[in-house]
Nucleic acid binder design. Structure first.
Length: 385
DNA sequence: TCTGGGGTCCTTTTGCCC
DNA sequence: TCTGGGGCAAAAGGACCC
């Protein structure tokens, strides 16, 4: 999709069409999630701090993100994709790879399929998208970026090198600011330059994996196939405080909230995880992580919290000013095939069952219907909670 | 300019065992 | 008893993507 979040907002509020629209949080510490091309003309880009975007584009109309809406539109668009082929690999809410080799005969070739998708999505959802067609995922991704917005580009196998080699190295998927800097220091400006460089040189500069990866991509080689439904590897939540926090009690309460939320998502996904990690970002933006691997996988908020709390307390940050904390659970496996070790003399705390009951209450009465007492806002404790 | 929140993958370091 | 090194898993950090 082109400027996905902003396009959805424009679709819902047509009177904003043609105006510079910026989707992003209202808070002072938020960033731009999406911006219309009218706003981009002022230099606004995604991931830019909102404060800066406002300065660059004071007339821009700022809209708070409505994540639920984007998820809905995304689901219907993905359904359009799946009507073409079951081989759909969503990359994010607004992007997917389709392997159309099998559908080509039925639907008349990749270009026609691409045009059909573009027309159907615009028809049904009123938003535009761009389609890249190529022999590999990586090239298709570059092709779609190249023809944005509202375009279609076919890169036939015979034109791969001609398309690829003039591009700047930064255009490659996986080459960000740091890698680009290293490459430019080596005098490598285009993908063609990269292709002409010995693999060993790239590996010395970028590490073995990145070196051979980029070398292959520079020649259009990419073995990765379209795989619908990759299993998730971790689930977590993190939050930036509105202002820096130096009170450990506030941090601990936040860790509790994040742990409960993360564990609820694990249970909803039917997964358990064995490693709990926390993330702490200090006022100066330096960030550290600490993790602990448990003897047994869990989806219990209390267990996640106690582990997270132990990691946090071990840091001894009594006076530090923190900007963000996060909790994540890794090494996920399906709950029903996780080895459940029954230890001799283990006492059954019953937390798992208690939290499953909380999940049911939340489904009936809404999220937050039942929550730890520490998370009940004292100013509102007299109301329905 | 003052930097979100959800992730993945890779590299390096560290501790442990043999 | 001390030293070294290979192999491994866990831990930590960092780059990158949308």
């Amino acid at each position: 999709m082109d400027a996905f979040y902003a396009s959805v907002e424009l679709r819902d509020r047509p009177e904003l069409k043609g105006k510079p629209v910026i989707v992003g949080g209202g808070g002072s510490r938020s960033v731009v999630l999406s911006a219309t091309y009218e706003a981009r003309a002022f230099g606004v880009t995604s991931a830019m701090p909102m404060a800066r975007a406002r300065r660059l584009c004071p007339q821009g109309i700022v809209i708070n993100p409505k994540h639920g809406r984007y998820t809905e539109v995304s689901a219907t668009v993905m359904d359009v994709f799946r009507s073409v082929t079951p081989l759909v690999e969503p990359l994010s809410l607004d992007e997917a790879f389709l392997d159309v080799a099998g559908a080509a005969r039925r639907m008349g070739g990749p270009r026609l399929i691409g045009e059909w998708i573009r027309a159907t999505v615009e028809d049904e959802q009123g938003i535009t998208c761009s389609v890249g067609v190529a022999p590999t995922k990586f090239l298709a991704k570059l092709a779609s970026a190249h023809c944005k917005p509202d375009g279609l580009l076919v890169v036939p196998a015979t034109d791969v090198v001609g398309f690829l080699h003039p591009l700047p190295v930064g255009a490659l998927w996986g080459v960000g600011e740091k890698t680009e800097e290293v490459l430019l220091r080596l005098g490598l400006k285009t993908v063609g330059d990269l292709a002409a460089t010995p693999v060993a040189t790239l590996q010395r500069a970028l590490g073995p994996a990145m070196g051979s990866h980029l070398s292959a991509l520079a020649w259009g080689r990419d073995e990765r196939v379209v795989t619908p439904h990759e299993p998730e590897k971790s689930i977590g939540n993190e939050e930036t405080f509105p202002v820096d926090v130096d009170n450990p009690e506030v941090v601990r309460r936040e860790l509790l909230r994040l742990s409960e939320r993360t564990a609820a998502r694990l249970r909803a996904a039917g997964q358990v995880g064995r490693t709990v990690s926390i993330k702490v970002r200090f006022a100066d933006f330096t960030t550290i992580t600490r993790s602990k691997t448990l003897r047994e996988s869990t989806d219990v908020g209390r267990v996640v919290y106690e582990t997270a709390l132990g990691l946090y307390d071990a840091l001894g940050l009594e006076r530090a000013r923190l900007r963000l904390v996060g909790v994540r659970v890794e090494q996920l496996v399906d709950a029903d095939r996780a080895p459940r070790q029954l230890l001799l003399g283990e006492k059954d705390t019953g937390w798992r069952e208690a939290e499953q009951a909380v999940d049911r209450a939340a489904r009936r009465f809404g999220a937050g219907a039942v929550r730890p007492a520490a998370l009940v806002d004292p100013d509102r404790s007299g109301d329905s909670s």
